[in-house]
């Protein structure tokens, strides 16, 4: 410890605040996870370990509702993430490998628009848009809205990855008689793959987790997991909601961890 005394880098209290930071970030989720295993129907008292609320999610009176909501969520997330990732990959290729051009800054602005506009404003705008063109609200409106705001999230890791790939790789491919299309599919795409995978996973989670926009553009009676959870929470926090939440949290953490290691593997 005598070494630390003369370390100009370290400051007293910073370690404690870091621990506090992590506690704040993780403790509420952990507490909810613990209570999801509570045998009691009350959320106040602890009556021992039980998986009854997990069983309740799958077989209980509300299970049909949650299963449908979960199916909607996953179908939308899979399609939205796939489409958004494809669009973002093409966009990144144009932005990073398209030289300088006049519409470049404008395009970058357009891509970051969903990140700059507050989510509630996007939600209102999208609702107004669908309403004014007479588009019936339902799963399709949710999907379209999700594709749009997933694009920047897919774009960021893909373009970051692409910036790290020097263009000499394609030049070498062209020099070795590959066409530009071959240089893209055989060289650039495989090299970009870690970025594409993390872009896809992030877009997937963003779509899966979205509440505000979904809440605005979903039709009456159409639910995704977040809107179903929100509706249930409004009537009081029940243990089965904690079980669903814990499963969803676990799923997100697994996805992000996979994304992290995919990104790391290549460096």
């Amino acid at each position: 410890m005598s070494k630390a005394r003369f370390d100009v880098k370290s400051y007293p209290g910073f370690v404690q605040l870091t621990v506090l930071c992590l506690l704040i970030l993780y403790l509420p989720l952990m507490v909810v996870a613990v209570y999801s295993f509570n045998a009691s129907a009350s959320i106040v008292n602890w009556e021992g370990f039980s998986l009854r609320w997990y069983a309740d999610v799958f077989t209980g009176p509300e299970s049909a509702k949650f299963k449908l909501a979960a199916r909607n969520s996953f179908v939308i997330a899979i399609i939205a993430a796939t489409v958004a990732t494809a669009i973002a990959t093409l966009a990144a290729t144009a932005m990073i490998r398209g030289g300088k051009f006049r519409l470049r800054v404008l395009s970058l602005g357009l891509i970051s628009l969903p990140l700059m506009v507050p989510e509630i404003v996007t939600a209102v705008a999208t609702l107004i848009f669908f309403n004014s063109i007479g588009f019936e609200r339902g799963l399709l409106t949710i999907l379209l809205a999700h594709i749009a705001f997933c694009i920047p999230f897919a774009y960021l890791p893909i373009s970051a990855r692409m910036q790290g790939i020097e263009d000499t790789y394609e030049q070498a491919a062209l020099d070795l008689y590959a066409t530009k299309r071959q240089a893209f599919t055989r060289i650039l795409l495989p090299l970009m793959m870690p970025g594409i995978v993390s872009g896809y996973l992030l877009a997937f989670i963003i779509s899966l987790d979205d509440f505000i926009i979904t809440n605005f553009v979903k039709g009456a009676g159409v639910e995704t997991l977040p809107t179903a959870i929100f509706g249930a929470v409004k009537q009081g926090l029940k243990p089965n909601i904690m079980a669903i939440s814990t499963m969803l949290v676990g799923f997100s953490i697994i996805m992000v961890t996979v994304s992290y290691f995919v990104g790391k593997k290549d460096n």
């Binding site: 020097e166 000499t168 790789y169 030049q171 070498a172 491919a173 062209l174 020099d175 070795l176 008689y177 590959a178 066409t179 060289i187 495989p190 090299l191």
Partner: peptide, 29 residues
């Protein structure tokens, strides 16, 4: 275009395709 010129280049940083084996790299052209 470069892919239609019968000249080949040894690049300064080699630009070896990192996702391909040595044999695949050499056979690429």
């Amino acid at each position: 275009p470069p892919n239609r010129r019968p000249v080949n280049t040894v690049f300064q940083n080699y630009a070896l395709f990192p996702h391909m084996s040595v044999l695949e790299n050499v056979g690429f052209g």
